[in-house]
Every structure is written in structure tokens, then in C-alpha cells.
Computed example of a mutant assay.
Amino acid sequence: MPDLVEESDASAATDAELAEALHGLAWTIHRRAPERAGVNRLPITEAGVVKQVLESPGATVGELSEALGLLQPNTSAAVRSLVQRGLVVREPSPDDRRVVRIVPTAAAEAERSAILEAWAGSLDRALARMDVADRAALRRAAPALRALQRAIRDASL
């Protein structure tokens, strides 16, 4: 039976406040990181698809749709656009030529690296303006935030 830990800190955020903070942070990252990296900003659906392709190269459109909680036609449209942008390619499966796998291009990898590098610089500058306790709290929260991301993704919430 898992240990239940009660929050004793009266200043702890409610779930709604945490959700609002995470949503605002995600939106800021999505909107600002590409421009700071010198790459074109993608529509949110395309950004999600290319991120998933980078994490799971060789997935089918159906697998991408399921992983992202998108309708298959929306995923197909995003893949078409990403192919036109040169960020993904369609490759026939070596096991079954009828199955098409979506794989990232070197351009997608380069853009991801540029965005992560630019965002890391922005994050470093932002953290430098925060007090030591807040910086430490954010760094301690990183594993829990990754676990939250996995739990939400895996539960298809």
C-alpha cells in the first residue's frame, strides 16, 4: 500500500492553481522558445506531432493519434504539413510495405536542439532573477513534473 503523505504547508498550491501555473508555463515555452531559437513557430498540433515523432521515431499515424489523443484526420493533416516543412518523412515499414512509418528528419532534430538550447538560456536567465529557495524548489520538482507528464500521457487525460 503506497504511503500517503499529507501536505502540511498551508501555502501549497491547490490542484487548480498548479494546473494554471503549469498551463501558463507550457504556453509561454511553446510560444517563445521557437522565436528565440530562430526557427519557425509551428501550430500547436504540428508541434505536438513532431515532438511525438522525435520521441517515438517510426510510429504510424494511428499510433501518433493515439499517443496524442488526436483524431486521425487531424494527425494526418499535421504530418502532411510537417512533410512539406521538411521536418518528418514517411517511410514504408520494412516488415510490411503497406504500413507507413513517420520518422524525423535531421532538420527536426536540429530545430529541437536549437529550441532546447535557446530555452535553456532563457531559463538560466529567469532562474538567476529568482531567489535561491524558489530555484531549489523548481529543481527538486523536476522528477515529479516528469512523473506527472507520464501519468497524464499514460492515462490519456
Score class of each variant (00 low, 15 high):
residue 80 R to L: 14
residue 63 E to D: 10
residue 110 A to I: 10
residue 152 I to M: 09
residue 4 L to V: 15
residue 122 S to K: 14
residue 56 S to R: 07
residue 110 A to R: 15
residue 5 V to D: 08
residue 115 I to E: 12
residue 65 S to V: 02
residue 107 A to K: 15
residue 114 A to C: 03
residue 123 L to C: 12
residue 7 E to T: 13
residue 107 A to C: 10
residue 146 R to G: 13
residue 142 A to K: 07
residue 138 L to E: 03
residue 13 A to P: 05
residue 15 D to Y: 09
residue 45 T to Y: 08
residue 95 D to Q: 09
residue 59 A to H: 01
residue 45 T to K: 14
residue 143 P to N: 09
residue 103 V to S: 02
residue 58 G to M: 08
residue 53 V to T: 03
residue 132 V to W: 13
residue 53 V to I: 01
residue 115 I to A: 05
residue 120 A to F: 13
residue 57 P to G: 05
residue 145 L to E: 04
residue 60 T to E: 01
residue 12 A to W: 02
residue 133 A to N: 12
residue 27 W to G: 04
residue 6 E to S: 10
residue 96 D to W: 05
residue 87 L to V: 04
residue 38 G to L: 06
residue 95 D to A: 08
residue 42 L to F: 10
residue 104 P to S: 01
residue 55 E to V: 07
residue 105 T to E: 06
residue 138 L to N: 03
residue 98 R to D: 14
residue 83 V to W: 02
residue 123 L to H: 05
residue 84 Q to Y: 11
residue 140 R to I: 15
residue 70 L to K: 00
residue 87 L to E: 02
residue 9 D to N: 15
residue 102 I to Y: 00
residue 32 R to Q: 15
residue 79 V to D: 01
residue 85 R to A: 08
residue 5 V to T: 12
residue 121 G to R: 05
residue 29 I to C: 12
residue 36 R to L: 15
residue 85 R to Q: 11
residue 1 M to G: 14
residue 116 L to H: 03
residue 87 L to K: 02
residue 10 A to N: 03
residue 83 V to P: 05
residue 54 L to F: 07
residue 152 I to D: 07
residue 45 T to F: 12
residue 101 R to Q: 14
residue 101 R to P: 06
residue 50 V to Q: 02
residue 128 A to C: 02
residue 78 A to P: 00
residue 28 T to F: 10
residue 157 L to A: 11
residue 64 L to E: 03
residue 144 A to S: 11
residue 122 S to Y: 15
residue 52 Q to P: 00
residue 136 A to V: 11
residue 88 V to Q: 04
residue 31 R to L: 13
residue 125 R to M: 10
residue 123 L to Y: 07
residue 109 E to A: 10
residue 115 I to C: 08
residue 66 E to K: 15
residue 41 R to P: 08
residue 76 S to R: 07
residue 134 D to A: 02
residue 107 A to M: 15
residue 71 L to D: 05
residue 141 A to K: 01
residue 78 A to C: 01
residue 3 D to W: 04
residue 13 A to C: 07
residue 18 L to Q: 12
residue 81 S to Y: 11
residue 64 L to W: 04
residue 157 L to V: 14
residue 24 G to M: 08
residue 105 T to F: 06
residue 57 P to N: 06
residue 113 S to W: 11
residue 15 D to P: 06
residue 143 P to D: 11
residue 56 S to F: 11
residue 100 V to G: 01
residue 109 E to K: 13
residue 35 E to I: 07
residue 82 L to E: 02
residue 138 L to G: 02
residue 133 A to K: 13
residue 155 A to N: 06
residue 124 D to N: 07
residue 2 P to M: 06
residue 75 T to M: 02
